[in-house]
């Protein structure tokens, strides 16, 4: 598979598989104490991240600066630069899957994945609503912040006014949405207690097998390096 096709490939991988790998990688970040095992993981994750996610230069600079400061601080305080480098690598193993998974998984796919593992329908609904209305409410918050600016109030500089200027009107909007969304759901025939079909059921595809084998190989290699260290 060429690198150009990788983002598309990762996007089509079974979300449950990606979640499982993400959990395994986070566990690795906690457990691995070998420098080379961490370096291998960071290397693979960095390649996947840069190929699959459109990373902005300022984010790279920001994360890089944070890691440098972290390493310098840890090294200076502990006097052990090997430990400082290892800490930075483990942090990256913790951070990178957190970027990759959401960036390569559409909310709809994730909802289907949760449906496939028989998560209670009300939880699937809650997830779906949270996803759907998070940007809507963020937009509402943005408009309220702008309305404050239009009255000459810059909330960024006056956190003391956050409650009356932002949270109070925002909560009124959210409560109003909650009432309307319930009605909206009912007009669309939704019933949390009735069975629902799935237009695109989650299926195991050959690509998933490939991904699972690749992930297993990576984890075995990492385990080997940790063992020999």
């Amino acid at each position: 598979m060429s690198l150009a096709k990788l983002p598309q490939f990762l996007g089509s991988v079974n979300p449950l598989l990606k979640i499982a790998l993400s959990i395994a990688l986070t566990a690795c970040a906690f457990a691995l104490k070998s420098v080379w095992a961490n370096v291998l993981l960071v290397g693979v994750l960095l390649v996947l991240t840069f190929v699959s996610v459109r990373v902005e230069a300022k984010s790279v600079v920001g994360v890089g600066a944070f890691l440098l400061i972290f390493t310098a601080l840890t090294g200076t305080l502990s006097g052990d630069w090997g430990y400082a480098g290892l800490g930075a690598a483990r942090l990256l193993v913790l951070i990178l899957p957190a970027l990759l998974l959401p960036a390569t998984t559409a909310p709809g796919d994730l909802v289907r994945a949760f449906q496939a593992v028989r998560l209670p329908p009300f939880l699937v609904l809650s997830l779906m609503l949270t996803w759907r209305f998070l940007p809507v409410i963020q937009q509402e918050a943005q408009r309220i912040i702008e309305a404050n600016l239009l009255r000459g109030v810059d909330l960024a500089r006056r956190p003391g006014l956050w409650f009356s200027g932002l949270f109070t009107p925002l909560i009124f909007r959210i409560v109003s949405y909650a009432d309307d969304v319930t009605v909206g759901l009912e007009t669309r025939g939704y019933d949390p207690e009735s069975p629902r079909s799935t237009s695109q059921p989650l299926r195991w595809r050959p690509g998933d097998t490939l991904f699972a084998l690749g992930a297993a190989a990576l984890l075995i290699a990492v385990g080997g390096l940790e063992w020999t260290a």
């Binding site: 009300f122 609503l129 949270t130 209305f133 998070l134 409410i137 925002l170 909560i171 909650a178 319930t182």
Partner: peptide, 23 residues
Amino acid sequence: RWQLKDYVFAALMTVGLAVTAKV
């Protein structure tokens, strides 16, 4: 029993929690 409007209200409060985490 929990009703649809309860689930929706809770989901919207979850959105609020997420927004505050970001802010």
